[in-house]
């Protein structure tokens, strides 16, 4: 089953084409990496898929809903986490969870039960009343991910989720992503860090608004006869 279907999607700003006839299908439970340099069109594409921006032409279905006609339904069924902004630093751990649960309109009973579960899973029971800004970066990242999937969305969008965190935390984070995917949540990771991409099931590389390559990290490396995804990327962009 496909959880994201993109068909000839195009976005123009005046004479500039930011996303140029992109077509793509992403399966339910897949961990999909979207790569590209700054200005390649990743952010524009993600904004369209998350209902923050309209497409100029083309079609897309996200979590079963048409992005043109049912944009609010799309928003209810996705989660989002970015490296820069994910949590409110001046709220406590518990308050952040409750706030995001409330925004997504889940019941207060659900919030209560699930909050305990999330705090247990993260080992943050004793930190529930601490301000988020007092947590180490690695914990914040893990909490941000838990919050992004708190309402059990069908798809979660992650923007450079692990850049800058230490190697051990980073791997704990990827295990959380694997666990979410194995429960059927589709994961779309946008990044320009190539080694982050190598953790994904499949990746697409965008350049100047077009999708230039698509496949598993292993397939792409074999196709370009290189050892690292970074070299595939450099080959395409140059």
């Amino acid at each position: 089953m496909d959880s994201i279907i993109i068909d000839q999607l195009t976005k123009k700003f005046g004479s500039f084409t930011a996303v140029d006839k992109v077509s793509l299908r992403i399966q339910k439970g897949e961990i999909f990496g979207l790569l590209g340099a700054n200005g390649a069109g990743k952010t524009t594409l993600i904004k369209i898929l998350t209902g923050l921006s309209g497409a100029s032409s083309g079609k897309a279905t996200v979590a079963g809903f048409d992005i043109h006609r049912h944009v609010e339904k799309v928003k209810m069924n996705i989660g989002y986490m970015s490296q820069k902004f994910s949590l409110y630093e001046d709220l406590t751990v518990r308050e952040n969870i409750q706030l995001f649960g409330g925004i997504y309109g889940v019941s207060s009973d659900y919030i209560k039960t699930k909050t305990t579960l999330v705090l247990d899973q993260l080992g943050l029971q004793d930190s529930a009343k601490k301000l988020v800004k007092s947590l180490p970066l690695g914990w914040r990242q893990k909490l941000a991910f838990s919050v992004a999937i708190f309402h059990e969305p069908k798809i979660v969008f992650l923007d450079e989720p692990t850049s800058g965190v230490d190697p051990i935390t980073r791997r704990q984070f990827w295990e959380m992503i694997y666990a979410a995917a194995s429960q059927g949540i589709t994961v779309l990771v946008t990044t320009h860090y190539m080694d982050e991409a190598s953790y994904c099931d499949r990746i697409a590389i965008m350049n100047a608004g077009k999708m230039e390559a698509l496949g598993s990290p292993g397939e792409l490396k074999a196709a370009y006869q290189v050892d690292h995804i970074e070299d595939v990327f450099i080959h395409i962009v140059r």
């Binding site: 051990i168 194995s182 080694d195 598993s216 990290p217 292993g218």
Partner: peptide, 24 residues
């Protein structure tokens, strides 16, 4: 194929000191 399952299986064996994901 099953990354998460494989990680857990490898941890359950008494062969390794550490098991962690590393790219593919």
């Amino acid at each position: 194929k099953e990354r998460l399952g494989l990680i857990n299986a490898l941890r359950s064996l008494s062969l390794f000191t550490k098991v962690y994901p590393f790219g593919e």
